[in-house]
Design a protein around this nucleic acid. Sequence first.
DNA 1: TTTAGCACTCTTTTGGGGTGAGTGCTACCA
DNA 2: TGGTAGCACTCACCCCAAAAGAGTGCTAAA
Lengths: 349, 349
Amino acid sequence: MIELTQRDQIVLEAIINDYIETGEPVGSRTISKRSAMNVSPATIRNVMADLEEMGLLHQPHTSAGRIPTVKGLRLYLDSIMRSRQLGGHEKERIRDALQNRPQDITELLRGTSRLLSQYCRQAGVVLWPKLSIASFKHIEFLRLGPFDIMVILISKAGFIHQTHIESKEEIAQAELDKYSLYINEILRNVPLSRVNQRIREEMESEKALFDRLFSRALQIVNRAIQYAIEDSEIYIEGQTNLLDNPEFAHVEQMRRILQAFEDKSKMIRLLDETLKASTGIQIVLGTEGELLREWQEMSLVSAPFRRGDTPLGVLGVIGPLRMDYSRIIPIVEFTAEFLSQMLEIADEG
Amino acid sequence: MIELTQRDQIVLEAIINDYIETGEPVGSRTISKRSAMNVSPATIRNVMADLEEMGLLHQPHTSAGRIPTVKGLRLYLDSIMRSRQLGGHEKERIRDALQNRPQDITELLRGTSRLLSQYCRQAGVVLWPKLSIASFKHIEFLRLGPFDIMVILISKAGFIHQTHIESKEEIAQAELDKYSLYINEILRNVPLSRVNQRIREEMESEKALFDRLFSRALQIVNRAIQYAIEDSEIYIEGQTNLLDNPEFAHVEQMRRILQAFEDKSKMIRLLDETLKASTGIQIVLGTEGELLREWQEMSLVSAPFRRGDTPLGVLGVIGPLRMDYSRIIPIVEFTAEFLSQMLEIADEG
DNA sequence: TTTAGCACTCTTTTGGGGTGAGTGCTACCA
DNA sequence: TGGTAGCACTCACCCCAAAAGAGTGCTAAA
């Protein structure tokens, strides 16, 4: 662990603050003038040289100021920065924006993503992962063709998932209706993650033994839920906000970043990982996450939202390494918290 | 109407072809060498001067070549250009890409959009407008709370629409189940556009008079379908392809264009208009469409897809004014045609 | 330990001259 | 009279050199 003196910390923080604000390399003069402590540029230069030796700062070229390295940012985030508290009316603004959303959960999530993007002036992202945590509410079978069944699965929170299943034998709508009646009965409120188990139990019970048809229904449900569980939705909004950042002025970088957004499956994996990794706010900086390899100059601030203790999904903000973390972190934190509350309510019906 | 001599046309076409290829202003020398007719640059220059006077060409600065104006492009598209025929294996490629799509209609449409974007190396777009043309397949009511009902509407083509409805009186799930049974019966295969009428008929019939409950159900359906009809889905893919075009090298332009994409409602209106306007391929150039005002340097090639004679939606390609229309037009045309066929099949179940 | 001073480095900006592509015009030719 | 050759002219673009500016490292002094 790196040991920093009090002054080292102050200088590092001042440099990072200034860099976050301007995006330019920061010189010793600036720090000397801005920072509260009265020391000359020359002194600052000595400190800076030390910090550079520790790998916390970096000099683009000999006669330029310093910019923080990823390592420096990390240290800053972990042990120096104090998050601003969100003001009351800022919280109000977030609450308002989410509460006035239509009740359709898809729109709620998309709206959350948009809110984050607008409020932080970066790209906002919401991952609603797999229904694995959701509870069963309703299932419906529709016959599309002799062997072709559409399965519509609805979770308690109101999320819809549709799957197509091919049946091996011909099947009538009337039969399907019987299935759904039966299945809706036995699976009511069962968490999707336990549906599998519940079905196994059911199939071992007498009823299923008597009726081959119902066991077929159960198999279909099993498959449908398998698909549903593997499916995730991701909502990325406000990508164009990133264009405002001077660090992405070059078209080349821009392309790389926007292309990364187009590959949703990779984004899903990345966010999914952060979901598993932590229960609180999490920050992934450029080179740190393996999956961010494509855009080393980017950074992700994310927080899970949950029902009770069970995480449901992740939301966050994606932007350049140079972001106003002290502002963005509390926003992300609060939004996650508030979204959790909203979902709690939505799930009680 | 502008009258062009044979030679004027040949020169205009040659200029546009060269411009489409290179993106640079075209000089008289180039045309003189490339074009089949043996005339000197000086002669070409005279013709060019004429064309410029007619407003078909434009000179960025005194000592540069000419580029076609929107008016020139329009004339070219309307009366000079001959579309290339699509080769058999090109058609095959499109067929393959669409046929191997999952049967989920959302994925089919998104896939079509992606196909167009990849194949034309521009942005692809598919509008699935309003269910107004679709036929009723199935409806399902789910009780979310005492007064809160989720209505799930499924069209024959497999499109799902969910709406939340607030009921004035408390309502039980058992009751809702009765509703859906009844309504699924009376609305089977009715085009959504005629549901309204059908419901009115039903409400006037004896049955409804006897049962206040069912008339309530009908009202709920009516509202749900109202919402559904006003809803459209738009799938835009491959936006980053646009970054490859040298004309968008400047970040400013890029931002404006990508921002226009983010405002989906405007895109929907634009495409919706082309759907109403024409039954065949349609090209909107920069300044022509009012809605394209934000990006005058863009152009849209679109074609409706349909079932029988009824248009279902629009698909197309969005790119710079300088696009290889002779290639893109037949691609868009064929894709629309083939998608229509696929939907025809999907709708038969 | 801090500071002032100074030489040095490297980027960025500015301006001017050269180059090349392309034009418009005029005179000439079939 | 339509086409062509020639020529002067106009710009945009590139290159280079010089100047400006920001910031550093080092040394010597407080």
